[in-house]
């Protein structure tokens, strides 16, 4: 075998990264499965991978540099490439759906869709079908089973996974259009539309609610009952809370389908005044203001 450095086109003091890069570039060009009809490429690829077997491993490269092994010492076991199976019966599952009808003439007669006398292996996968499924907010959060009527009138129970997001798509394998010429059926894709909820909103894995509190709860603090997606929980409003302050209920959000971790529920406080301002409240505020006036707008600066 030739000098492996020469085969990869790198110098003797090339870094390991350079060698890897050179190998990748050559392999992309020469890999037999990317050049199914080029015998020359296959021969060259064999040399290139043999060279990389030596230079790609630092200890082997060092042995080679010291002259302890020669370039022929690293022939890799022969594997048959994919191209040797493709197009044959054993690889029928990988036939493309393309019809080549655009080639016209004898190709179209032989290999076009629905033409008499086309070879049996030219089967086509059925088309995919899309459906929409509206799901209630809480069903989307906890998961549910929903019955869907398919295009052919049959019904199917679709498992809506826990924590499914709005516009997320569920794939039902082989529930699409039937295949042509013995080809496999297509898939059904069900896009989930999550209905809005009057109280809960969803932001990623968190549930967000606006939580109304009274002025006395805001000033003095309180323990209040808060609705969550599974049950009511008791939450402490700290003394001196303002509107738009957020309190977090850990783990009361939506379960993330990838990580399995639950988000939080974020409660955004909204101070709500009593429907009627009675004389007592009014006079006590007037009195309080005389000695404790404050300006929450001072940071807003001047301007028109």
């Amino acid at each position: 075998m030739e000098d492996p450095y020469k085969i990869l086109g790198v110098s003797k003091n090339a870094s390991d990264d350079d060698i890897k890069k050179a190998y990748r570039e050559l392999a992309k060009k020469l890999h037999p499965d990317l050049n199914p009809s080029d015998k020359g490429a296959e021969e060259r690829f064999k040399e290139v991978s043999g060279a990389f077997d030596i230079l790609g491993k630092p200890e082997k490269r060092a042995q080679f540099d010291r002259g302890e092994i020669d370039a022929s010492g690293a022939e890799r076991p022969e594997h048959r490439y994919y191209k040797e199976y493709a197009g044959a019966d054993g690889a029928r599952q990988y036939q493309s759906d393309a019809s080549f009808e655009d080639l016209g003439g004898v190709f179209s007669d032989l290999f076009g869709h629905g033409q008499a006398g086309r070879p049996r292996q030219f089967k086509m996968r059925g088309g995919d079908i899309r459906y929409h499924l509206a799901v209630d907010f809480l069903d989307a959060v906890t998961g549910a089973t929903k019955r869907v009527t398919l295009h052919d009138g049959s019904t199917i129970d679709v498992k809506v996974p826990e924590g499914v997001k709005d516009h997320q798509t569920i794939r039902l394998a082989a529930k699409g259009q039937p295949g042509v010429g013995g080809g496999p059926p297509g898939d059904a894709f069900i896009e989930i539309d999550v209905r809005a909820h009057p109280i809960f909103r969803r932001e990623a894995d968190d549930i967000v609610v606006d939580l109304p509190i009274t002025i006395d709860e805001a000033i003095l603090g309180a323990k209040v009952d808060v609705p969550t997606i599974d049950k009511r929980v008791r939450m402490t409003i700290p003394k001196g809370s303002s509107s738009d302050q957020t309190l977090r209920l850990k783990g009361k959000g939506v379960k993330n389908s990838t990580t399995g971790r639950k988000g939080d529920q974020r409660c955004i406080l909204k101070i709500v005044l009593p429907k009627e301002i009675d004389g007592e409240l009014e006079s006590s505020m007037e009195k309080w203001r005389e000695t404790h006036a404050y300006n929450p707008r001072e940071k807003m600066g001047g301007g028109q």
Binding site: L34, S37, Y82, A86, G87, A91, Y94, S96, F100, L110
Partner: peptide, 17 residues
Amino acid sequence: LSLIDQVHDLREQTRII
């Protein structure tokens, strides 16, 4: 993969012809 599969289909068809 899709291009490779199409190439092989074409090659197979060329072989048939």
